[in-house]
């Protein structure tokens, strides 16, 4: 089921086009990775979706309603984790959560419970009574996330939630995102770290210069740009390998033996690794395997001709 549908959104900042007829669907229960360099229009897209800024053209459908981005009832079902740390420095971690829970309409015992759960969820229970100015960067980021969780949003939008933190805190946050997905939360996750998207996203949308340039699962995106798959198997005794059987596998274009290494080249998406390995294992021991596969960085490079971190600052 689609819970947010963006159709033909255009957003201009004076003479600069930040979003150029963007189409995007967010399906229930998925982690949608929104990938793009700085300045690609990710934050602008999020702000349009959250009703923070108006857009010049297009339609956004939220939870089945058209033109509903400014409705408070819809905002209650959504949560935004901002790119900047936007917590109140003078309030304790617990008071920060109480503030946001209150604004989302939670009251009494329910509010208390949700605040407690959110603190536990981000691992800040022991720091509940401390103000964030004493927190490390990673802890502040976690509190920044918790502020968007107390009301249990159906759609959580996370705008570069791991910028500038240590790997340990990043892993903590990525684990938390996975847990949220397991609990049924739909997540729109924007980043320019492709490793993050590769590790958590169920689907990826790549944006550049205000346009969606590709979308699909990580494998689909990779397959789209991949022309062939190359498998290298290092064996004990290459002379015993039934080359003809390997050649007869579906999609195999070429099999070569270079010393102890068997090189198998197949069509893109043939997925011959398992089959080739079992044939080789029947006659010889395997010393090493290498499957050369492009990653999202290569996908991005192929589609846009530039590296993911090349971009300039976001105009928004």
């Amino acid at each position: 089921m689609t819970i947010a549908s963006i159709k033909g959104i255009v957003k201009r900042y004076k003479h600069q086009i930040a979003l150029d007829y963007v189409d995007l669907d967010i399906h229930e229960g998925e982690i949608l990775g929104l990938l793009g360099p700085n300045g690609a229009g990710k934050t602008t897209l999020i702000h349009c979706l959250m009703g923070i800024i108006p857009f010049d053209k297009g339609v956004i459908q939220l939870f089945g309603q058209e033109g509903a981005v400014f409705h408070h009832e819809n905002k209650k079902k959504m949560g935004l984790v901002t790119q900047e740390i936007t917590v109140f420095e003078e309030l304790t971690a617990k008071e920060n959560l109480e503030f946001f829970a209150g604004v989302y309409g939670l009251k009494g015992e329910e509010k208390k419970q949700r605040v407690k759960e959110a603190l536990e969820f981000v691992g800040l229970s022991s720091k509940a009574k401390q103000t964030p100015n004493k927190f490390s960067g990673g802890m502040k980021r976690r509190l920044n996330i918790a502020c968007a969780l107390t009301h249990r949003p159906k759609l959580l939008i996370m705008d570069e939630p791991t910028v500038g933190i240590d790997p340990q805190s990043r892993n903590h946050i990525l684990d938390a995102v996975r847990k949220l997905k397991e609990q049924g939360t739909t997540i729109l996750y924007t980043t320019h770290y492709m490793e993050e998207v590769q590790s958590i996203a169920t689907r990826v949308v790549i944006v550049d210069q205000g346009q969606v340039i590709s979308e699909g699962t990580v494998d689909e995106l990779i397959n789209n740009i991949q022309h062939e798959e190359k498998i290298l198997i290092d064996v004990n005794d290459a002379t015993m390998i039934p080359i003809d059987r390997l050649k007869s596998l579906e999609g195999v274009k070429q099999v070569q033996v270079n010393g102890s290494v068997i090189q198998i080249i197949s069509n893109a998406g043939a997925g011959n690794l398992d089959r080739a390995l079992s044939i080789v294992k029947e006659t010889s021991g395997v010393v090493g395997i290498q499957a050369e596969k492009p990653n999202l960085e290569d996908v991005f490079l192929t589609l846009t001709g530039k590296q993911l971190r090349d971009g300039e600052d976001d105009p928004s």
Partner: peptide, 12 residues
């Protein structure tokens, strides 16, 4: 300033 976007995203 800094908190604008977060507060605008809230149902209030």
């Amino acid at each position: 300033a800094e908190r604008k976007n977060r507060l605008l995203s809230l149902p209030m």
